[in-house]
Design a protein around this nucleic acid. Structure first.
Lengths: 231, 231
DNA sequence: CCGCCTAAAGATATGACTTAATCAAGCCCT
DNA sequence: AGGGCTTGATTAAGTCATATCTTTAGGCGG
């Protein structure tokens, strides 16, 4: 995701530090200090700071330094910020927030997809649901994850709403997060896979209400499982 | 929102140009050219470009220049990007997207608010609903807008979900946009105001289902009105 | 058709200077 | 004498100008 140059290196170090709370609200960084710490020039430090600034995680203040802003100010929809938080101490809270967001958005997206999806997208959904069935039964979690993520991304894309479409990466981050942190059973529940097939069928058939209902079952189910595991 | 220094000036000029499509996908800017055009130093240009980059609106490419990325790559949840698009040629599409997002999110948020809201928040909601009734009847659109925005922001805040909470500014932008661009009747519909009172009551009473239902009526109604006006 | 070369443009480094915010000393008024 | 206001010193970010390094698109030659 972040294959940048030197500023990327700073960002990859500072971002997670802030996201994890290691550098709490009000912490102060100084450009000069960062130059020394990372052995880079001001140009690079400023670039990195600008990016953190545009994520609203820090604010530069003259005569004081670069100060860390309260978490409530952060750009919580920024995929990079989400990734940092998922990797750190905030994982549980972040997964819960994202879970609720999915419950709100994905059923609506599935409903819209039933009327807006292209033929290619409908075919892709059917194929992906099938693949999920196979790889799920085989216990191939890596492939399952990929198809699961593609499935949800395709639904969001097919909704025809660009804002929904952009949540595809975010949803993938959630799915990947819960797989990688072993918050999932070794064999995905058969009923969940069945629901994916149902969504695919409903979208193919243009059945808005059915698509919405089935997707709601998927995401509320996921949220419940999550709450179980996290408690 | 963006009261920055010199980089802010560039941003305030370049951002809208890109957002409006005046600088379409693939357009190329060169740092040197921007230095000359705006009469500022490299440092300033780089700062501005970095911010656009972190909004995923441009990507720098060596030997080529700063290229404008396809709209589908943009960070469409970034409040600044939203504001730029609302101000420009994309207004209609942006309002539609946001409308659908509201339909998905706000009912869920209202439902959560019914169980999570603090006493202060419940009181605030009742008060705001009352104010909306008054100012709506009086035809004081400016005050009505402020209370309407506060109402929705409070609901989103009270949901206890930080991601929902962050959509407060976005919703305000929508409401403000439709008022300022005269996409609203001179006297807000009485039934809409009534629904706000209903949401407030349901939240106060802890009635999740009712809060959700009433809020859904509000936002679907708003979306329908919008579709009418835009067609 | 492929691989080497080069020039163009971003990336990084650095030193000098400007601007603005904080802090504290000093002053005035009560 | 005490509290509040003014003012100046200080400090760190902001801006500018310039130089060098690195990457790579696109041309040239094999």
């Amino acid at each position: 995701m972040d294959i940048q140059g030197l500023p990327g290196r700073l960002l990859a170090d500072l971002g997670p530090s802030i996201a994890s709370g290691e550098l709490g609200e009000g912490s102060v960084l100084r450009i000069e200090e960062l130059e020394a710490r990372y052995g880079v020039s001001r140009t690079v430090v400023r670039d990195a700071v600008r990016m953190l600034e545009s994520m609203r995680m820090v604010a530069p203040r003259r005569r004081v330094g670069i100060t860390v802003r309260p978490k409530s100010d952060w750009d919580v929809f920024n995929p990079t910020v989400i990734a940092w938080r998922l990797a750190g101490a905030d994982r549980a809270a972040q997964l819960r927030s994202l879970g609720s967001l999915r419950v709100a958005v994905e059923p609506a997206a599935a409903g819209l997809a039933a009327t807006h999806a292209s033929d290619d997208q409908r075919r892709a959904l059917s194929a992906l649901a099938m693949e999920m069935t196979m790889t799920g039964r085989a216990g191939d979690l890596e492939s399952f994850l990929r198809h699961d993520a593609d499935f949800h991304a395709t639904i969001l894309q097919a909704s025809g709403n660009e804002m929904f479409a952009h949540l595809g990466d975010t949803v993938e981050a959630v799915l990947r997060g819960r797989t990688e942190h072993h918050l999932m059973p070794h064999h995905p529940a058969e009923y969940a896979v069945q629901l994916h097939r149902e969504v695919a069928e409903a979208v193919c058939a243009g059945d808005t209400a059915h698509a919405e209902r089935a997707m709601r079952s998927i995401v509320t189910g996921a949220l419940e499982e999550l709450d179980e595991v996290l408690s």
